[in-house]
Nucleic acid binder design. Structure first.
Lengths: 354, 354
DNA sequence: ATTGTGCGGTAAACCGCTTAACTGAGGCGT
DNA sequence: ACGCCTCAGTTAAGCGGTTTACCGCACAAT
């Protein structure tokens, strides 16, 4: 292994000078700089991150702590991760995905080892034990998501209020008055405290009230099967429903499938708007899902930035709330759309049984 | 930060003794052991991984190198990752997901920094430039997947031959003779060299020949849309087809959707068997996909094990090929199934147009 | 008694880099 | 011409462990 010493020797300078140049932490004349750079090139030097980490007490590694067991790592998470990793690399940091449990014990272990400079915390719960662990350890961190009381916590999150408001307005303006929300399953103990579900539901209650809409909320976990079941419940319990909002993207796939199975045309008979979804998932539904597109790339990037600012001592990034933006698909139309008679639906088959 | 020195002091021993105990690298009497352990407990000591790494030249971190940009991180990958991470943790290693490009430059950078002891390489191409990078750097590594010439390379992979053979036999025994394979899109320059696609297609050619089946292969990338298009091509180009094998799981979703759209009943009119799929994805299709279940958990675990054996100097794990196992769903039945007349299909709707 | 010899334990040299304190050589004001 | 700064570089003390060489002691064998 070629070390800094080798480089220094070959360049005829002291090892400290090499270090200063590398870190740009003290000026170096053009002449010496050239000599050192040449030496590094000749020798194929790469600085040892571990040694640097030990000496400087900064590893330049940040972890994205992900509760891999509780939350499936789906398309959306993938977006968060890749955009976050990219943002980190641009600032000379490494962002790695670190699987940790939701309770904080693995996280504590990770932090104790001094391997990471900071943590981007995903899938934050409203009252998240991991936050205490992070606080105690003194490790800087940023949240993608947010807790209930976030006094000064650095975070970015989806703007659920705006997202839900926009979604409902869109349906409302198309003429829908009989809405239902297929929400998260807050009865599931693992998720009763899960921010996105709680906040979306809260937002929906507010928005529904302000639009004077009936409040129909069906709990549903994030699986296709659960979505099918939930769709069935909506049909039996609220048969007058003309449009359904679905919070979970995999559930949305099930909702579409379930409705079709029972002979409903989408969007002719009933519209489906998926609330937090990525295009890849939307494309999996049969009429492609109309969705509010999860701002994954933005949040991943901002979350990392929020963390790195702390690490670099820059002034903190103020909390950011980004709404999911409406993205057209083929599962939303006006209620009892005029063309339901014309039969000119370009996709062919339309069943009218039951 | 509480260091080993603190512990040693409190226990009244030398720092070396503490180290020996911690690493179990030299015997320590029960009495001193007890004192040291008590001291560690009192002080809440956690050994600093960075220092340990520098001194011992082992970081105890292994990276799963994943080409995040080229390959979408889907459900299957998620399985690989979590099972690999679990296996690593059981042996006192950390497995982190490290996003690297397919060309090897980012990988080289990662290795040069001495941050990881070894690498589990994912999404291996038949002639993968990253292998050379790994070889040059001298870093131990294991492949999940395999290259063409793998002289002594430590690897685990899917047993494509058995998988395809089992899949074809299943359909054959049900009476299907008119098969088609919707394969990977080897014309895509990013994937022309992608092991799973090449090997599956090769295997299929062999098996089809040995079963005396017609050779119908449609290229198709791994998206739902591509699957829809491919399904259409099968119908127009090979309308007599009674069963379709689909290599890519997201394409399989599209195939099912596409067939239904054109008024075909699945599996009444045509069967669909998805070749490398995880249950989560299978559940997203409308009749739930019948599949060959990707042995993700096994491979993740074995891949890690193969790497760790090298790191620990144990005798190497011989290469392992694991077939995907048949897993029933609702998209496969016999051709023109007898019950097609009885009309007792429990799922309701059955269209017979076209 | 003498000599090994195994064994629990210690001292100290690193591992490769960062960084505070220091040095020495101009340049500048007066 | 003198002190005083400034500035590029150097020296050396860590960072928190691992690991090699060594030490002294008790016990068995000679």
């Amino acid at each position: 292994m070629v070390t800094m010493k080798d480089v220094a020797q070959r360049a005829g300078v002291s090892i400290a000078t090499v270090s200063f140049l590398l870190n740009d932490t003290k000026p170096v004349t053009a002449a010496t700089r050239a000599r050192i750079e040449q030496a590094m090139l000749d020798l194929g030097y790469r600085r040892n991150m571990v040694a640097r980490a030990l000496a400087s007490r900064r590893t330049h590694i940040v972890a994205m702590a992900y509760p891999a067991l509780e939350h499936r790592f789906g398309m959306s998470t993938s977006e968060f991760f890749t955009s976050a990793a990219e943002a980190a690399r641009k600032q000379d940091y490494h962002l790695v995905l670190w699987p940790v449990g939701n309770d904080g014990v693995e996280l504590r272990e990770l932090l104790g080892q001094g391997l990471v400079d900071g943590v981007v915390l995903m899938e934050v719960q409203l009252d998240d034990p991991r936050i205490d662990v992070l606080r105690q350890s003194g490790t800087p961190f940023a949240l993608i998501g947010r807790t209930t009381e976030l006094d000064g916590l650095s975070h970015v999150d989806i703007d659920f209020d705006t997202t839900v408001e926009d979604a409902v307005r869109h349906l409302y303006e198309l003429g829908h008055r009989e809405l239902a929300l297929i929400s998260g399953d807050l009865d599931d103990p693992r998720f009763h405290d899960y921010g996105p579900w709680v906040r979306t539901e809260e937002a929906y209650r507010r928005v529904a009230a302000s639009y004077d809409l009936p409040l129909r909320i069906i709990p549903c976990s994030d699986t296709t099967q659960a979505g099918k079941d939930a769709a069935a419940r909506v049909l039996t319990e609220h048969s007058e429903t003309t449009a359904i909002l679905v919070l979970n993207e995999y559930a949305a796939l099930g909702v579409v499938a379930g409705l079709k199975h029972t002979g409903h045309d989408i969007p002719g008979d009933i519209s489906v708007l998926s609330l937090l979804t990525v295009p890849e998932t939307a494309a999996m539904a049969d009429p492609e899902l109309t969705m509010m597109r999860t701002p994954g790339p933005e949040l991943g990037q901002l979350g990392t930035q929020a963390l790195l600012r702390q690490l670099e001592g820059d002034d903190p990034l103020p909390p950011q709330l980004i709404p999911a933006k409406f993205s057209p698909g083929a599962t939303v139309a006006g209620p009892r759309a005029p063309r339901s008679k014309g039969g000119a639906g370009r996709r062919g088959a339309r069943k009218a049984r039951s």
